[in-house]
Nucleic acid binder design. Structure first.
Length: 197
DNA sequence: CTCTGGATTAGCT
DNA sequence: GCTAATCCAGAGC
């Protein structure tokens, strides 16, 4: 691909098992377009969230107005606001009717770094190494909630240019009080933009 | 209707 | 290490 003519991940990529989608999202490019400007980051850290099998998931107790996107068609953005301060970006997974989502926890800045710095006013290494940080850097808010990520628009995900080999590490998820026994956090080994503990 | 606490971060001690 | 910031979804009444 080139960033001019990106190959967007198809619906079939997302409508699979959440853990598989989570792992395979590592290394893909998250693209954010605001007007003419393009901001791109490589996905380096994710977490998987399920349904009634996962007490840490918003979908654990069934469908509600907020989490309904997790039950809907795969490949959409599920964005929620938390701690009174931060937005988190998720990608919906699984077949329609079955809840699932992958939280994008960190990306590596690839393009539009000047814009990210403008949005975040901090150093390169702190730009996108956390779920609330990357949404700030990419200017993602509730307005983007529900967007179809399989269509080239203001927000989508595409295949990377170069097929580099990736070493995946799995660990416990961060910031939750239940469901901590599940090793559903995945990140690229030794990548400097993975969030700090 | 009211209340509680969270898939976080930055800034201070 | 600790906690304020600051909103709103979801649960309980």
């Amino acid at each position: 691909m080139t960033l001019k003519n990106p190959e967007v991940l198809p619906r079939s990529f997302y409508s699979r098992d959440t853990l598989t989608v989570a792992k395979e999202l590592l290394g893909k490019y998250l693209v954010r377009q605001v007007g003419r400007k393009m901001v791109v980051g490589k996905i380096v850290e994710v977490e998987a969230y399920g349904g009634s099998d996962d007490p840490a998931s918003h979908a654990y107790r069934g469908i509600t107005p907020r989490n309904k996107l997790m039950f809907g068609e795969a490949g959409h953005a599920y964005i929620y606001f938390t701690y009174g301060n931060h937005y988190c970006l998720n990608v919906t997974t699984e077949k329609e009717g079955k809840p699932g989502a992958v939280l994008i926890r960190a990306i590596e800045p690839v393009k539009g770094i000047d814009l990210m710095k403008k949005h975040r006013k901090t150093s390169l290494e702190n730009l996108t190494n956390g779920p609330g940080k990357l949404t700030q850097a990419l200017k993602i808010t509730k307005k983007q909630n529900g967007l179809d990520l399989t269509k080239k628009g203001e927000l989508f995900i595409c295949f990377p240019q170069n097929k580099e080999k990736i070493e995946i590490v799995s660990s416990r998820r961060i910031g939750i009080k239940v469901g901590t026994e599940k090793l559903w956090r995945f990140y690229i080994k030794n990548n400097p933009f993975v969030s700090k503990r």
